[in-house]
Nucleic acid binder design. Structure first.
Length: 600
RNA sequence: GCCGACGUAGCUCAACAGGCAGAGCGGCCGAUUUGUAAUCGGCUGGUUGCCGGUUCAAUUCCGGCCGUCGGCUCCA
């Protein structure tokens, strides 16, 4: 079975890669003077980058698709051949991007995407019809293996040559292709379904948050219902952090420039900080992170080894000037409330502290039922030392090894990726995917060996000597913005009761039941439940529909029978009808679900 | 920030090829009083994102700005 899947994967890969070649041929026929860059297969499809004399339009895509179908039906075989550097250069003398790729392959021993190739570089091409592309392959044997009714060109986008923003921007066409028409249809339907759970759409429908042009891009307004979710998440964080020995602190939203110079953030971060404001000759910045403030709290008095680990927690509000094109609903914003904490510990305590954080993550993920995530160990890259990263290779290697060891000892699977670290140390990032497939770092757990030194943070060890602590930065619940954006999609808006803004909607069948409904509401309130009464002049059916659309977990229908018996007829949003229950029984059930923070 | 598309009522969306801007939902008023996903009728609602240009006339064509979206870059 696993073997079969592997074959499927290989075939899909070849299919997608081959379709991208066919597309490139079609585009070059349309624009004979066009330049082609690269066109790899990707998850669910493929793309190809072009440098063309004019911008593409959606109508062009239809044209290109049409031509692609003709090419496919030409039943052209894909043939591979190896070419000498001279021949390759001759073949692509009018294709500057290909020439650059050839040079790269020969110089660095990499393939056309810059990945190293074992056994040195060989130049090869794949040809079908009259289109011959510099390519390592593999491909399907014949264009006829591409189902002409199972591919679709999806979008046109800009993309920098070699992914570098200093390079020219090319035009990228994204497409998708599947083994059959049915697979394609299913994929497109899946995309459609995913759009329905998009947090931007649900956030509006469920009245959780909004943006206002006059307030500013990336600055969300939390509506009352969203505010409830924030309150509940903070309550959870406070409970968990209290149990784990954290202490809560509070720090201001801005500080003098000196602080960020001192922390070392300013040179690395200036681009993404709001510009300074000046008062009486002093420059202040609104904070993009909480760490320097917490360091100052650590430094507020002499520390002993007996004080460690010291764990300072704060839901701190930070502001980062993300580039305009990078903003994305709640997932990428400019004002954010971070589930932040900094723990200061000795080297011996590091592993236990670090694993303590990881287990906190896992506890949260279990609670939320988050199963699809990847823990990524992000390490430094030698080339970035002194630029992107603090220039201390010895400590980089040492702390990276410490994290590896901690993860291995804790039996936590992780993936290691170079050149993704924070500037002050390695980190574990938790990667998740939004409904529409965008990847995000949800939470992060970072080692910091640089800032304690910059702030002269020390503690007196057992031997009476001053020692520098390590610092761990962590944010298991991410920021409220990203966490809630993610949870909206994760639950498709149907939050478990404890997070539901409205936990119970009381539905009087006729106006004469409103008084009883209000009594029920009072009792829910007294029990600490969030309930409201739908007293609109609608029929019960309409009231139920509205509650369903709002994804309210409990609908309590009350009519004559219920009023007479101090009962409520309980309907769940899953459409399960529990029938009449004594009010006290319902309240007990709801409170239990809330206490467990599970289900409805 | 870069490339491209888009922006019409609170929401979802119409308006031939420049010629007085429309529907459904919502909201308000009234009628109805109903047992598990939409009761009926009436009313209300817009300087068509903003600024400028072309034109007798601009939602429509052109330019600039703002915002959103799809990507790229970047990122909690």
């Amino acid at each position: 079975m696993a073997d079969e899947n592997k074959h499927d994967e290989e075939f899909l890969h070849k299919l997608r890669h081959s379709t991208s070649h066919v597309m490139a041929q079609a585009v070059l026929e349309m624009f004979p003077e066009g330049k082609i860059a690269i066109g790899p297969p990707i998850e669910n499809g493929f793309y190809y980058d072009f440098d063309l004399p004019r911008t593409l339009t959606p109508e062009d895509l239809a044209q290109i698709e049409k031509r692609m179908k003709e090419i496919i039906q030409g039943r052209y075989p894909f043939t591979r051949r190896e070419v000498s550097p001279e021949e390759a250069r001759g073949l692509y003398k009018d294709q500057p991007y290909k020439l650059e790729l050839i040079d790269g392959i020969l110089a660095a021993g990499t393939d056309e995407y810059g990945n190293p190739v074992e056994g040195g570089a060989t130049l090869s091409t794949y040809k079908h019809d009259h289109f011959e592309d510099l390519c390592r392959g593999p491909h399907v044997e014949n264009t006829s293996q591409i189902p002409a009714d199972a591919f679709k060109l999806l979008s046109i986008a800009g993309a920098y040559w070699r992914g570098d923003e200093h390079n020219k921007m090319l035009q990228r066409i994204y497409g998708t292709v599947w083994p059959s028409r049915k697979d394609l249809t299913e994929y497109l339907e899946m995309l459609e379904e995913a759009r329905k759970r998009d947090h931007r759409k649900l956030g509006k429908e469920l009245e959780l948050f909004t943006f206002d042009e006059e307030i500013g891009p990336g600055l969300p307004l939390w509506l009352p219902k969203g505010g409830i979710i924030i309150e509940e998440l903070e309550r959870l964080a406070k409970e968990m952090e209290y149990k784990a020995g954290y202490e809560r602190v509070r720090t201001p939203h801005l500080a003098k420039e000196d602080l960020y110079l001192h922390s070392g953030h300013l040179p690395y971060y200036a681009e993404s900080m709001y510009p300074p404001m000046e008062m009486e000759g002093v420059r202040y910045y609104v904070k993009p992170m909480n760490c320097p403030f917490h360091h100052k709290i650590y430094a507020s008095k002499p520390r002993s080894y007996r004080d460690l680990p010291l764990r300072l927690a704060e839901y701190g509000t930070c502001y980062r000037y993300e580039k305009s094109g990078e903003l994305f609903g709640l997932m990428r914003v400019r004002s954010m409330q971070m589930n932040d904490a900094h723990m200061y510990c000795s080297e011996e305590q590091f592993e236990e502290e670090f694993l303590g954080v990881v287990s906190l993550y896992l506890e949260y993920f279990r609670l939320f039922g988050i199963e699809k995530y990847v823990m990524r160990l992000s390490t430094h890259d030698k080339k970035g030392l002194g630029k992107k990263y603090v220039d201390n290779e010895r400590l980089w290697l040492k702390t990276e090894e410490m994290v590896r060891r901690a993860m291995q000892h804790g039996n936590v699977p992780y993936l290691e990726v170079a050149d993704e670290a924070a500037f002050y140390g390695p980190k574990i990032d938790v990667q998740v995917w939004s409904a529409i497939g965008k990847e995000f770092t949800l939470a992060t757990n970072q080692v910091d060996f640089a800032q304690p030194g910059r702030f002269n943070l020390t503690f007196t060890n057992r031997g009476g000597q001053e020692e520098m602590p390590l610092c761990i930065h962590r944010a298991p619940l991410s920021t409220h913005e990203r966490m809630i954006g993610f949870l909206i999609e994760h639950y498709a808006g149907a939050f478990p009761v404890w997070l539901s803004p409205v936990q119970a909607r009381i539905i009087p069948i006729t106006d004469r039941h409103v008084a009883y409904a209000q009594q029920v509401a009072e009792q829910l309130k007294a029990a600490g439940l969030r309930g409201d009464v739908d007293s609109t002049a609608e029929r019960m059916q309409a009231k139920i529909r509205n509650a369903q659309l709002q994804k309210i977990p409990y609908m309590l229908v009350v009519g004559d029978k219920e009023a007479a018996a101090s009962a409520v007829a309980v309907r769940l949003r899953t459409e399960e009808n529990l029938g009449p229950k004594p009010l006290a029984e319902f309240i007990a059930r709801a409170l239990e679900a809330i206490r467990m923070r599970q289900g409805i």
